[in-house]
Amino acid sequence: MTPSTQSLALSSQSLVAAISNPGSLGTIESYIGTVNRLPMLTQQQETELGERLRDNDDLEAARQLVLSHLRLVVSVSRQYLGYGLPHADLIQEGNIGLMKAVKRFDPARGVRLVSFAVHWIKAEIHEYVVRNWRMVKVATTKAQRKLFFNLRRMRPDGQTLDPEQIAHIARELNVKPEEVSEMEVRLSGQEMALDQPHDDADTYAPIQYLADDGSEPTQVLERRAHDALQGEGLAEAIEQLDPRSRRIVEARWLQDEGGATLHELAAEFGVSAERVRQIEAAAFKKMRAVLA
């Protein structure tokens, strides 16, 4: 182990637990200050550590690669402070992306870890922001995510977009104009609790303005028709059956407790169980026709 690598290992003991909880060092400023004091790896050191991790699953090598790039996570996470989420949480998610990048890092590709890791760090932070920015998820498709992270920057002075601006943004981001308009509406809207209490007795929470589907006239009529179909309609359909078919249906399906089996009815009518099944199927077909 080279002197600078050894210094990195010795000076970073308190950061091992802090990777998953940046606030554990006291304040986020303390964490950032500690991270920025860690020495960076040279390309040769990075290559050696990467080979040890790739060839031998060396966890110590992985730890040193992660710790030496924590400052990168801090730098990337600052780009997402405008979404109103805690900086410590953004760093924590970025650290997860960094660890995923280190696990997949192969120095034989000739790419420095910093270039490889930045994409994984952003991916984890993107997922966290989309998942937690609002209670209702605003971006699910690839196009919506692209718009979510670029539209505010591309919208001049936060003003409402006109058709020409919408078309320009759609071309720049390779999305549909209607997707731009939809995301603009989503970003402009504000969340409101359905049962938000009000001090004013004359005002009502939004939930009180929602329609009760159970009292909607068409729903009431449909329920009545369904109940009639199950009662009067079923009785009428059974009346259309011949005595043997009616006996089989009633014995099999209209008993309060376990109905008769095919073999019990076969013995009663002196036919095979398969014949009873065929009579039952024909009876159901005729009953469905009557109910229709």
Score class of each variant (00 low, 15 high):
residue 63 R to S: 14
residue 64 Q to V: 06
residue 65 L to T: 09
residue 65 L to Y: 06
residue 65 L to Q: 03
residue 66 V to L: 05
residue 68 S to E: 09
residue 68 S to R: 06
residue 68 S to Q: 08
residue 70 L to R: 08
residue 71 R to S: 10
residue 71 R to P: 00
residue 71 R to F: 00
residue 71 R to M: 00
residue 72 L to W: 01
residue 74 V to G: 00
residue 74 V to Q: 00
residue 76 V to M: 04
residue 77 S to M: 05
residue 77 S to E: 03
residue 77 S to I: 01
residue 79 Q to A: 10
residue 79 Q to K: 15
residue 79 Q to M: 08
residue 80 Y to N: 05
residue 81 L to M: 12
residue 82 G to P: 05
residue 82 G to N: 11
residue 84 G to T: 04
residue 85 L to R: 03
residue 85 L to F: 03
residue 85 L to N: 01
residue 86 P to A: 13
residue 89 D to E: 07
residue 89 D to Y: 02
residue 90 L to I: 02
residue 90 L to F: 03
residue 90 L to E: 04
residue 91 I to N: 05
residue 92 Q to S: 11
residue 93 E to P: 02
residue 95 N to Y: 11
residue 95 N to T: 11
residue 95 N to L: 09
residue 96 I to R: 09
residue 98 L to N: 05
residue 98 L to W: 03
residue 98 L to I: 02
residue 98 L to R: 06
residue 99 M to T: 10
residue 99 M to Q: 09
residue 100 K to M: 12
residue 100 K to W: 02
residue 101 A to Y: 03
residue 101 A to W: 06
residue 101 A to R: 05
residue 105 F to R: 07
residue 106 D to I: 07
residue 110 G to V: 10
residue 113 L to I: 13
residue 113 L to F: 07
residue 113 L to S: 13
residue 114 V to D: 14
residue 115 S to Q: 14
residue 117 A to R: 01
residue 118 V to S: 15
residue 119 H to V: 13
residue 119 H to G: 14
residue 121 I to V: 15
residue 122 K to F: 01
residue 123 A to R: 14
residue 124 E to P: 02
residue 124 E to L: 07
residue 125 I to T: 03
residue 126 H to D: 10
residue 127 E to W: 02
residue 127 E to H: 08
residue 127 E to D: 12
residue 130 V to F: 00
residue 131 R to E: 15
residue 131 R to S: 13
residue 131 R to C: 02
residue 134 R to N: 10
residue 134 R to H: 11
residue 135 M to Y: 11
residue 135 M to I: 11
residue 136 V to P: 05
residue 136 V to G: 04
residue 137 K to I: 12
residue 138 V to Q: 15
residue 139 A to L: 04
residue 141 T to F: 01
residue 145 R to C: 08
residue 145 R to A: 10
residue 146 K to A: 15
residue 149 F to T: 08
residue 151 L to S: 04
residue 151 L to M: 06
residue 153 R to F: 14
residue 154 M to Q: 13
residue 155 R to A: 12
residue 155 R to W: 07
residue 156 P to A: 08
residue 158 G to T: 00
residue 160 T to A: 15
residue 162 D to N: 13
residue 162 D to R: 11
residue 162 D to L: 05
residue 163 P to V: 08
residue 164 E to K: 12
